[in-house]
Design a protein around this nucleic acid. Structure first.
Length: 460
RNA sequence: GGUGGAGUGGCUGAGCGGCCCAAAGCAGCAGCCUGCAAAGCUGUAAAACCACGGGUUCAAAUCCCGUCUCCACCUCCA
């Protein structure tokens, strides 16, 4: 069975076949860099990272674009009196830090909206030429997409134009409530640097046109997968689709939408003030625990965050990393499909059913531990390799790889361990326990195995 | 009003017609192991009647109808 993905446009599972054999092109809506990331943003990025890792495991070349929306109403507002672009870059850096720490691979391209204004102008021109967009009035730099001019408008979210609520008519010169901005005329109170010269006057781009333009720039008129958070389905993705199709492009072949992270059952969002920040998360668990927790639900299921979420995830993750560490085979592995259990592959092929995949992983850990205890070396070896391969696919490899420890620190640890061993041999358990506590104070956890004692750094 | 999604053990979370007297994890309990721990293994719980009520079927957590509750989106949102 091959990979099946849930296409939210067709609202069904479809067998995934790339447009061009061997290559998969993905466009994912990245963040609007208006404020620091919260758990919800991390989930979204992680979902597509996982997809990408799995496609790679299936031997596809993956070209992934994740944009950065660095010009937007909120960016300007939140920058306050500061230079808005500088502010945007700072926020972007905080996103990138979080992505790196969560072991999310860097996309092939991470374009900034502000660097593709020309592409947006070109696309907008085309839409005007084709009769799907209009300048609000002569002399105005407000340009709108005329939704009613595109018969398929609403196809992504299965909605009819007449049922949509829309904007107040005539605001900024739009002709009907569902028309949306392609370019927004420069306002005198906004910084002069936040406006570009366009054929219609000084303006900055609307949100939706950015993604259509950048997707086209990097991936062409048709590409395989468009991803993003469920809250972007409408209007953002609906509008992207309408624009690009109206401009004559095929656009995305599959639409993927990840479900949201909730807190006490309601959506995590900036406006509700319930966004869980990176700092708060790290008080509860490591990056590994965060990643494990995010992987523990299928991407289309809601994931409710609570105080104990990361504690549970930590314990579960330690069961896996503990197994790898006790075998002392902590060298990371490369992608190796052959070593992956069939049940794991089946789970991942089922629309990235990561909870099921984790179940296979834990089953393998149990078998491996049993083999370890009974001294069944071949079985143990098989298990370790399978576990490491699965962990690699899930992007959790860094959770078991020994962190870099300075040679001095390592020597200190080993000296303490040997002292403790002497004390144990002499049955001086008081001293042995003191040393164990001392090591813990240094952030080192030890485990006595039958013939040796192994150690690891907490949160390493 | 419109469009989607969800309700499974103490908690998280799979399953979506028979292999389900329901995976896996966490938490709990017991035993083994240990100088003691930790880790691990094994077993297990004074009932998971799969939101509720009907129905279809030889067979339903899974399909159909109705009801209730919750969530998301309807031009700021991952």
């Amino acid at each position: 069975m091959g990979l099946e993905l849930f296409d939210s446009k067709e609202q069904k599972l479809r067998e995934f076949v790339p447009l061009n054999a061997g290559v998969v092109e993905i466009y994912v809506c990245g963040p609007t860099v208006q404020s620091a990331p919260h758990l919800g943003h991390l989930r979204s990025a992680l979902v597509y990272d996982l997809l990408r890792r799995w496609l790679k495991a299936l031997d596809y070349e993956v070209i992934m674009v994740r944009n950065v929306t660095d010009i937007d109403d909120k960016v300007l507002v939140n920058a306050g009196t500061r230079n808005w672009l500088e502010f945007a870059r700072e926020v972007e850096a905080s996103f990138n830090d979080a992505y790196n720490n969560l072991w999310i691979l860097e996309p092939t391209h991470s374009p900034h909206a502000t660097e593709h204004i020309d592409d947006m102008i070109a696309l907008t021109k085309k839409l005007i030429d084709r009769g799907h967009a209009y300048q609000a009035e002569v002399g105005s730099a407000n340009v709108f997409f005329h939704s009613a001019s595109w018969p398929s408008y609403g196809e992504l979210t299965n909605q009819k134009l007449e049922n949509m609520e829309g904007e107040p008519e005539a605001s900024f010169g739009r002709r009907s409530p569902n028309d949306f901005a392609l370019f927004k005329a420069h306002k005198p109170e906004e910084p002069a640097t936040a406006a570009w010269q366009t054929p219609w006057g000084l303006a900055r781009p609307g949100w939706h046109i950015e993604c259509s333009a950048m997707a086209k720039h990097f991936l062409g008129e048709a590409f395989d997968i468009h991803g993003g958070g469920l809250d972007l389905r409408f209007p953002h993705h609906e509008n992207e689709l309408a624009q690009s199709r109206a401009a004559g492009d095929h656009f995305a072949n599959f639409w993927l939408h990840n479900a949201l992270v909730t807190v006490n059952g309601s959506k995590m969002s900036k406006s509700q003030g319930n966004g869980v920040s990176v700092e708060e998360l790290l008080e509860k668990g490591s990056w590994g625990a965060i990643r494990y927790w995010l992987v523990s639900a299928q991407y289309r299921s809601n994931l409710d965050y609570s105080d104990k979420s990361l504690a549970d995830a930590s314990s579960a993750l330690e069961r896996i990393t503990g197994f790898i560490k006790r075998t002392s085979q902590t060298k990371p592995v490369e992608i190796d499909l052959v070593k992956l259990p069939q049940a794991f592959k089946d789970a991942m092929n089922q629309d990235l059913n990561t909870p099921l995949a984790l179940a296979v992983l834990h089953d393998t850990v149990r078998a491996g531990n049993a083999a370890f205890d009974s001294g069944d070396a071949p079985e143990l070896q098989k298990s370790v390799e399978a576990v490491k391969a699965m962990v690699h696919v899930l992007g959790l490899t860094n959770a078991y790889v020994e962190s870099d420890v300075s040679p001095e620190f390592r020597a200190q640890i080993e000296q303490l361990l040997s002292k403790r061993q002497q004390a144990k041999t002499a049955k001086d358990f008081n001293t042995a326990d003191k040393i164990r506590a001392e090591l813990e104070g240094l952030g080192v956890i030890i485990k006595d195995l039958p013939n040796e004692t192994i150690w690891s750094i907490i949160n390493g």
